[in-house]
Amino acid sequence: MGAQVLAVASDGAHNFSKQARERIEIVAGLGVRGDAHLGDRVQHRSRARVDPTQPNLRQVHLIHAELFDELAGKGFSVRPADLGENITTRGIDLLGLARGTTLRFGSGAELEVTGLRNPCAQIEAFQKGLLAAVLDKRPDGTIIRKCGIMAIARTGGVIRPGDAIAVEPPPLPHHPLERV
């Protein structure tokens, strides 16, 4: 089995969790139609308060279902859309992608990976202890953020559960993901 979409979600309000959907529509340059993070300028509330003119590098949020498996092994119950992601994937190492990687979906929708999601304190209100469970440390002490990646919408189209995902790395040199 190759990389595929397990679930899709959106929410028009700035809620922590999103609503699972049968499909989402990607709008080029803006994100997910009907989602609170749709826009070419930053929509994340805390970041917009600081500078609402910043470009929106967080138009689409993706999480790998393998994280849910890992969390289940630690006693947590997390399902697609619970952590606010638009797209839940399986069979792709999202955290290992380079900045600028293109993700192509069956409908022609294309996303460009911009960086890592930085989990916030709201995750602790969702389930106590979850923030620590989605963070780790490398031997050198740097933080590993496991709560998915962020992307911008390059080409529009519809994305549904079961859609295949093709991965196209950016030109060399590759740059690792950082939080956005």
Rank of each mutant, 00 (worst) to 15 (best):
F68K: 05
S107R: 02
A81L: 02
G106L: 12
G106M: 05
F126D: 00
G156F: 07
D69A: 15
I87H: 04
D140M: 07
E178F: 10
R49Y: 04
V5M: 11
L67P: 04
M150W: 13
L83G: 03
G31V: 03
G129E: 09
G39W: 03
C147F: 13
A98I: 07
L116G: 08
T142Y: 04
A121I: 12
E178W: 04
G106P: 03
D140H: 06
P161Y: 04
A9H: 00
F16G: 04
D93P: 05
Q4H: 15
T101N: 06
D35E: 03
H175A: 14
L135D: 02
A20D: 05
A81R: 07
N15F: 08
H61I: 06
H64S: 15
Q4Y: 12
H37F: 08
G129P: 10
V113Q: 09
L103W: 10
L172Q: 14
Q127H: 11
I63P: 02
V167S: 03
K74W: 05
L130K: 09
M1K: 12
R58W: 05
H175R: 14
E110G: 01
L62Y: 01
V78L: 15
Q54H: 10
H61E: 00
A81Y: 02
D35H: 05
N86A: 08
T102S: 12
G148Y: 01
G157S: 02
E124G: 09
A81Q: 05
D163C: 05
V158P: 00
A81V: 09
L95S: 02
I165P: 10
Q4E: 13
T53R: 12
S10D: 04
G156D: 08
F76I: 10
G2Y: 11
I63A: 09
H44A: 13
R138T: 11
I149H: 01
G148P: 06
I92L: 15
G39R: 05
R49I: 01
R160N: 13
P161K: 04
E25I: 05
R90I: 08
I152S: 03
V27W: 01
R154S: 06
R138K: 15
A20M: 04
D69E: 15
L6A: 10
A65W: 11
R23D: 05
N118K: 12
K18C: 07
F105N: 01
G100P: 03
L172V: 13
L116N: 08
I87A: 00
R104V: 09
G108D: 01
L71S: 09
V32I: 15
D51L: 06
P176F: 11
K146F: 04
V5Q: 09
L6T: 11
D82V: 02
S46D: 13
P170W: 04
D69H: 09
L97R: 10
A9R: 02
A81N: 07
T88I: 06
E22C: 02
K18V: 01
E25L: 08
Q59T: 02
L62E: 03
P169I: 07
A98M: 07
A132E: 13
I152D: 00
S77C: 07
D136L: 05
A20G: 07
L94E: 03
R47W: 06
A164D: 09
I143S: 04
E66G: 14
Q54P: 00
P173L: 09
I92Y: 08
F16S: 00
D82P: 02
